[in-house]
Each structure stands twice: as C-alpha cells, then as structure tokens.
Design a protein around this nucleic acid. Structure first.
Length: 288
DNA sequence: CTTGGGTCCTGTGCGC
DNA sequence: TGCGCACAGGACCCAA
C-alpha cells in the first residue's frame, strides 16, 4: 500500500501520541509479520520513551531513549490507527465495547502515555518491525543501499542522471528501485512520468538529459501535493484517525484505464500495461 | 555486477 | 450464489 506520502501522513497522525511519549505497553499478537519480530520485541520496547518519530523513504522510525530505533514498514496493506476510544473519550462520548476489541489482522498494540492506544493492522502481513541500534542503522541491510530521499536536496537531476547511467531497465522499473530514489511506489511513479510526459517504457539511460530536471521536479511536486492531501486511499490506506486521504481524486494516469488523457490538448487515452509484473498506467500519445 | 521472475499473504471484484 | 482467476500503495531471494 503505502508509498512515501501515505507513510508521511501516518507519521503526522502518530506524532501527538508517540513523539515525546513513553510506551506503557506493547503487545504482539502473533510471532511474525513478513518475518519474525526480533527477540523480546515487546518487552524491550515497554517503558521506553520515543524521542523522535521520523521517516526514511517508506519506513517509519521511532528513535527511543537507550540508543535504539523502532523500525516499522507498512508493506502493502499495513495501517496504524489511533484507538477511536481515545478520540471519543476526548469528546466525552460513549465508548462502544467493539472499539476495544481486536480484529483478525490487528497484529501489534502500542499504548502510550498520551494516553493512546495504537493498533497496527496488516492483513497481507508484508509489513515488518525491527529494533535496531542507532549506530548501526545506516549500515543495516534495510537502509545500506537505499537511494536519496526524494524531497531532499540530495535528490536532484545530477544525482538521478548518475543513478540511471547504464541502467538497462525501463524508467518505470528504475524509479521503483529504492536504490535509485527511495520512497516512490507504483502510483507516484506512474503519476510523475505522466506529468513529465516520459514513456514508462523508455530505457532509463536513454532519457533526454533535458528531461531529467523536469522529472525530478514533478516527482517532488506530486509527493508534496499527495502529502497535503493526506495520501491516496484506495483499499487499505487511511489516516491514523480512520479518515481517508483524497489524492486518488487527483490521479492523472494511475487506475484510469480507458479514460481520456488529462494533458491539455492531448487526445490520447490512458492505457494499462504490465512491466516487471506490475501495472503501469500511461498515455502513449503524449508520453514519449 | 545487473536484471527478471517467483514468492510471501489475504481480500476483493470480475466474468462465467 | 458460487467458483476461479486476476489483481492489489512492496520488496526479498535466487537464478541466469
């Protein structure tokens, strides 16, 4: 599910209940997600204070007192929700018993001293959680080869040019490669390529140099706009309060098969093709 | 080294 | 209404 804008939206929703707060209780409700939780995961988290909640690419990172960082990846279907009972209690509303129960795919519970009850739900279980020493975070296999953060100054046309040099894959696949730029997924790659009017089939090292800077700017722009919209809510993504993002209403190409191309003056239709096993949506008329 | 394909898992929507 | 298949915001792992 979540690409950078969705993870950022989740981070912002969790800030008031996690950053500067202490974890009073942590409970895992099964032994693994994509892989097992680290040894004593819940026990090692209990009582720790979250000094800072930040994001790297699609990872949520909670820096804890004691020199370790809780690493969370939402996979395809992961959600974090702040318990409705906390919101209702704040409003003085009646708390329904069902609000306190667990669903079938609620895998991790965090309680902070906000106070708040935060539930991680992930029906496909492609998500992961780990606890890593701060000093070894950058060298950790999850982050070691990761490319630049797209909204930072470390992501620019010169860096992108170097990263694409010699790449034999289509640009669509290259931009999904987290070593090239970290945080894009299927939606925002399709959207950025449409905005930049670059064909997803064009080989990565064959992009005209003059088109690289616009591509970089469109990538940044679509991410920023999507964050402002609270991300895209298709199937699984919701904000931590359960409300939906609305960037899906701004899609130009993604999931718009058969609809007219929104590029001004373009008479094309959005097509769906498969690249590297994933759907690509684009306009063959204006994307060259 | 790079690249492509299969795989993990569950749920949903479609055509028949 | 049921069944089977395709597909879903991701990213490993392994073979070539």
């Amino acid at each position: 599910m979540p690409e950078l804008p969705e993870v950022e939206t989740v981070r912002q929703g969790l800030l008031p209940v996690l950053e500067g707060r202490r974890l009073l209780k942590v409970e895992t409700r099964r032994a693994d997600l994509r892989r097992p939780f680290p040894p004593d995961f819940a026990r090692r988290l209990t009582g720790r204070k979250v000094l800072r909640l930040y994001r790297r690419a699609k990872y949520l990172l909670a820096e804890l007192d004691g020199g370790e960082t809780l690493v969370i990846h939402l996979g395809m279907s992961g959600r974090m929700s702040v318990g409705v009972e906390d919101q209702k209690r704040a409003l003085g509303a009646y708390i329904h018993a069902a609000d306190l129960g667990f669903g079938k795919h609620d895998h991790v519970l965090f309680e902070s001293d906000a106070p708040a009850r935060i539930v991680f739900t992930d029906h496909r279980r492609f998500g992961l959680m780990d606890l890593i020493e701060n000093d070894s975070l950058e060298q950790h296999p999850l982050f070691r080869a990761m490319g630049p953060e797209p909204l930072s100054n470390h992501f620019n046309s010169a860096i992108l040019k170097a990263a694409l040099k010699g790449k034999k894959t289509p640009i669509k696949s290259a931009l999904l490669d987290q070593r090239v730029v970290a945080g894009l997924g299927n939606i925002y790659v399709c959207e950025a390529l449409h905005m930049a009017q670059i064909s997803p089939k064009r080989l990565a090292d064959k992009i005209q140099p003059a088109k690289l800077e616009p591509l970089v700017q469109h990538i940044k722009a679509v991410l920023i706009t999507a964050i402002e919209a609270g991300g895209s809510s298709l199937r699984d993504h919701a904000r931590t309060d359960g409300t939906m993002g609305y960037f899906q209403h701004n899609f130009r190409a993604y999931d718009r098969t058969g609809q007219p191309c929104p590029t001004p003056g373009c008479k094309g239709m959005i097509k769906r093709i498969t690249q590297a096993g994933r759907s690509t949506f684009y306009c063959a008329t204006c994307q060259k």
